[in-house]
Design a protein around this nucleic acid. Structure first.
Lengths: 192, 192, 192, 192
DNA sequence: AATGAATGAGATTTCATTCAT
DNA sequence: GATGAATGAAATCTCATTCAT
């Protein structure tokens, strides 16, 4: 009974996640979400104040999951190489399973364009601080495992995020290994 | 007359580019474009079949510019390091000047979510083949300058694009150099 | 059981009266009434056919109370001055205690705007005849106590009702006495 | 041409006034207003930010008209009796011609229940100060024409407003004269 | 009798597009 | 060519009412 309502909320969020991930905020109509999870339009408004609220809650949940998972990888005592490998694998797998928003990764430091301003506001309020914390932890991890003074570690974090997203979006089977190799060893080259 | 109308068309595209770049497709209203370039709303429909058409034409132009510029860099006979440096600098500068869409770079291989399906269709038709060509040329350049067999060059292209975008989006002054250093040399590390 | 259900019905009406009096028909949601009297929304529909029905029953009860009270004042054998004084005091006190709808008094002869037409219909059916009876009794009282032939007594009734409402709405401490003085003596004046 | 748009705005306000006056805020749908003045629903939103905005603008205009007219009557140099007579006649006629909101008169000091809170807020901001000014002027007029110290003049103002509204609402042909007679002379009576 | 989750009709509002001038 | 007022389809959101438990 009480499970019922939790599960109803979850049903809605599940449907919303799937649709928002595939089509983005504007292209998903509240009706679409309702239809996908088999409830009436009004029901969604029992659990979520607005479409924006639904979107942001789905987003927060997704970001929280990602953050928890990455944090788990950082905490597992692996060395740098294996840690990066795990992170890249994680992005690859998550997306392939369509478990998370592909576009989630793009929000940190990315542009928040093409969202209504109230959504942007909510995202700022709810999500950015969580991401900042993760960034700090990753940088802390770097500082323990990378001794080169050439590499600005905040920049490195941003590059890593970009590459993770590229992996997630790519359909290549080898991109994860390529990324790892490039990051660890650079590209071996001959000048012309 | 025809100059007049070309220039009128350009005025509209210029305004549209600026707005779409900053706010995305949905957040820009046809009214906004009209106001910014000082024409009546109806005038826009003399030059563009629809908002979707305007968007895609702006997009194509932007992508064409980027492709031409990258192609120019590739053709200038620089070595690998300098070429990458130029490319990264190009992204950094383009964005800082707000000359191009920040989000343009994300479209290839990225998600086309949150665009109306007719826009997505047009983009597939108009843009993807152009990008494919550029990708081929970049990979061709790699194959002449990188001898390592570890690195899948199509993957590398994707990683490079992701990093370019990260540079474009970042507010860090050093990210370009960090990216270059990582790509060329990898990160020097000590295992725990 | 029947006491129980009568009392349940009363609880609901009490809450409804309070809310309708304060905020009007539309601004009160069935949810609000349910919450205020601590029953489930569905329960209200066990006792009342609809929100309109609840409203009209609350209204009828309120009007009946007012009519009974005014009738009591008329019947108590006071002279005209004291009777008017009592009536004005009654309105003043009723409102101050928030015992009755402030807006109840406005319904007779007033506009029934901003109520759904089914409510208006019910009010016509249920309330207007009761008010007509009271009007007749008040006029009968006037005819026994006022000998002036200048004053149309039906008009006087309407003026009295308006003044009673003004007293009820006012926050002035002296308005009751002012009203009484004006009605009994008129305003003494000097022309300019 | 420019007259056209002014007149379109006026058409809408005219229709809105008529409907709001007859049926109140909630009972009037934006569609009703559109249909009555023969425009599309969307057109109304070209001229008015929202239904609430339309309502308040109609209200302000009506109140301003009433205030100007009453002010004109006060300034015309009539003596007290004739002034009151004019005011009562004005209310009677205005309503009969359906020129103004019947309910306008009720707003000062009345309850603002059964309006959405944003409308209430706008009314407070836009209307109450104008009414206060008029009240001051009426009281100033009283102080020059009434020498009796029995009558609190602010109370008298409120009573007068109530009576004016009663006149406006009444269908009696003689109520204006009755009211005037009562106010000037009081009711002549014999106690029992 | 009581519940409260679910419903869906109906309201307001937006905005790409049209077309008479 | 240019205009911008007008349109109306389509979106979000509300809330009285129902009904399975």
């Amino acid at each position: 009974m009480t499970d019922q309502s939790v599960s109803r909320e979850n049903q809605i969020m599940e449907a919303a996640r799937e649709l928002f991930a595939k089509k983005g905020y504007y292209e998903v109509k509240v009706d679409d979400v309702a239809k996908l999870c088999g409830v009436a339009k009004g029901t969604i408004y029992l659990y979520f104040k607005s479409k924006a609220d639904l979107f942001v809650r789905v987003l927060v949940e997704g970001v929280d999951d990602i953050i928890d998972d990455i944090r788990g990888i950082l905490a597992s005592g692996r060395d740098l190489t294996r840690t990066l490998s795990c992170i890249f694998e994680y992005y690859e797998d998550s997306i392939r399973k369509d478990k998370y928003f592909r576009r989630f990764g793009e929000i940190p430091r990315g542009l928040l364009g093409d969202l209504p301003s109230d959504v942007v506001y909510k995202i700022h309020k709810e999500i950015f601080s969580r991401i900042q914390e993760l960034e700090d932890e990753v940088i802390d991890f770097f500082s323990k495992h990378i001794k080169s003074s050439d590499v600005n570690q905040s920049d490195l974090y941003q590059i890593l995020v970009a590459i993770s997203i590229a992996i997630a979006k790519s359909e290549s089977d080898t991109i994860k290994d390529t990324a790892l190799s490039v990051i660890l060893n650079g590209i071996k080259k001959e000048a012309i």
